[in-house]
Simulated scan of single mutants.
Amino acid sequence: MADDRNRRRFSDPRAAAEAAFRAATSPKPEAAAPRQAAPRLATPPGAREVVSLRLDSAVLAHFQKDGPGWQDRINAALRALVPAAED
């Protein structure tokens, strides 16, 4: 009867303890060096960058009311606010 109980066990406590000991004492493989982000290339003067910007719906409607080119109009309005904006 005692032999039947041992066969039904899914894991042997001694084997589990030995596996835990081996895992704790075995040398760990060296971790890979952390990946560094690629260096950012200098943007040429006058180049534009893609950004995500949240605007009030009234502000967006004001610039879009004249049709295509609304992004250029927003850029021009912002450029007028920036001192010494370079081209």
Rank of each mutant, 00 (worst) to 15 (best):
A23I: 00
A24R: 15
T25L: 03
T25F: 02
S26R: 13
S26C: 05
S26T: 15
S26P: 01
P27M: 13
P27I: 15
P27G: 07
K28H: 07
K28Y: 04
K28Q: 14
K28P: 02
P29E: 15
E30T: 12
E30S: 12
E30P: 15
E30C: 02
A31Y: 14
A31P: 15
A32D: 13
A33W: 07
P34C: 02
R35Y: 06
R35Q: 14
R35I: 09
R35V: 11
Q36A: 12
Q36F: 02
Q36D: 05
A37R: 10
A37P: 05
R40T: 11
L41T: 05
L41P: 00
A42L: 09
T43Q: 13
T43V: 03
T43F: 12
T43M: 10
P44T: 11
P44V: 09
P44Q: 14
P44N: 10
P44C: 08
P45E: 14
P45M: 08
G46F: 00
G46H: 04
A47C: 09
A47D: 11
A47G: 10
R48I: 04
R48Q: 10
E49A: 12
E49Y: 02
V50M: 08
V50W: 00
V51T: 04
S52E: 09
L53A: 09
L53H: 00
L55I: 05
L55W: 02
D56Q: 12
D56V: 02
D56K: 14
D56Y: 06
D56M: 06
D56C: 03
S57T: 13
S57D: 01
S57N: 07
A58S: 13
A58T: 06
A58C: 06
V59D: 04
V59R: 01
L60A: 09
L60G: 04
A61C: 02
A61Y: 06
A61I: 01
H62I: 01
H62Q: 07
H62A: 10
H62M: 05
H62W: 08
F63N: 04
F63K: 03
Q64C: 09
Q64N: 05
K65A: 15
K65V: 12
K65E: 15
K65D: 13
D66G: 11
D66W: 09
D66N: 11
D66M: 02
P68H: 10
P68W: 13
P68K: 03
G69N: 09
G69T: 10
G69M: 10
W70P: 06
W70F: 14
Q71H: 13
Q71A: 15
D72Y: 05
D72F: 04
D72I: 06
D72N: 14
R73F: 03
R73S: 02
R73L: 02
I74C: 08
I74R: 08
I74Y: 01
I74D: 02
N75T: 06
N75D: 13
A76H: 06
A76N: 07
A77G: 01
A77D: 04
